[in-house]
Amino acid sequence: MHIKCLARFCAVLTSGVLLLWSMAAVAESGWLQLNMPRGVTAVSREVYDLHMLILWICVVIGVLVFGVMFYSMYFHRKSRGVKPAQFHESTKVEVVWTLVPLFILVGMAVPATKTLITMEDTRDTEMTVKITGYQWRWQYEYLDQDISFFSTLSTPREQIYNLAEKNTDYILEVDNPLVLPVDTRIRLLTTSADVIHSWWVPDLGWKRDAIPGFINDNWTLIEEPGIYRGVCAELCGRDHAYMPIVLHAVSKEEFAEWVQQQQQSTAISAAH
């Protein structure tokens, strides 16, 4: 009776898993989204390498510690008739397992410090964009080009409320994307007009809070043209999930063209 129940439960579970698996195969989607993106800047790759380094160190330590534990759980069990040892102190091993982790930590801290110093060095930038968070959209101001616009979610409400098929870029699409040139050291200032937001494009390798009354200083240098998407990462109220970031990284020439277009259209609307 009991075994039967268990067998039935297992069967249901397996078929459920299989169903999920086949659904995945059809959709060919998120199952393989397991890790941080390497990104498209030197900094994002450094961050990725750092992440993988620490991850592997943790995996190795984990395998060792849990390995010893499972060995002990298998061989040192009462049912095997072992008599418990009575040792309970050893200053020597305590010193060893205090110092060894300390050295490992120093080994992690060195590359982490280097990367951090690079990331925080905002000198020598070639252009500046000021990013302001609002409930619930972003404003981008190109301080050197005198361009300014808002960037708002463009996914239709029907998709959010499941009344229409969802786009591939569901809730990661906006009306006016942020356009930036590649191979340019760009200063990105973040601030906010109401509550705290956080501007995050994973492919750039960092996020930074947008705080009312503060202007935070960051930089990036994008190496590959492309469309990169991000989100607001700090809870900012009802539509926190609905203020995405879309970043178009274009060649310097295309950027110059785009700037001209923008300035013209501003001039036209000013003339009217």
Binding site: V65, M69, S72, H76, K78, V82, P84, A85, V93
Partner: peptide, 9 residues
């Protein structure tokens, strides 16, 4: 882990 080691669990 050392407490478990060579105990009679």
């Amino acid at each position: 882990v050392a407490t478990m080691w060579r105990g009679a669990m």
